Simulated assay, not measured.
Amino acid sequence: MKKEQTVRYMTTAAMIAALYTALTLLFAPFGFGPIQCRISEALVILPYFTPAAIPGVTIGCFLGNLFAGAVPMDVVFGTLASLLGAIGSYALRRHRFWVCVPPIVSNTLIVPWVLKIAYGAPELVPYLMVTVGIGEVIAIGGLGTVLLLGLEKYPMLFRR
Rank of each mutant, 00 (worst) to 15 (best):
M15T: 09
M15V: 09
Y20S: 01
T21K: 06
T21G: 06
A22D: 04
L23D: 07
L26Q: 09
L26N: 11
A28K: 02
G33S: 13
Q36T: 11
S40P: 04
E41I: 13
A42F: 00
V44S: 05
I45P: 04
L46P: 11
I54Y: 04
G56P: 07
V57Y: 01
I59N: 02
G60C: 06
G60E: 06
G60Q: 11
L63K: 10
G64T: 15
N65H: 05
L66R: 12
F67C: 15
F67S: 14
A70C: 15
F77A: 12
G78K: 09
G78T: 15
T79D: 07
A81G: 14
S82M: 14
L83D: 06
L83C: 14
L84D: 14
A86I: 14
G88S: 11
G88M: 11
A91P: 05
R94E: 09
W98S: 02
V99A: 01
C100L: 12
I110R: 10
V111P: 04
W113H: 13
V114A: 07
I117D: 03
G120V: 11
P122M: 09
L124R: 10
L124S: 14
V125H: 03
P126W: 09
P126I: 04
M129H: 06
G133Q: 01
G133H: 00
I134L: 14
G135D: 02
V137G: 00
I140P: 01
G141M: 07
G142T: 01
G142D: 00
L143A: 15
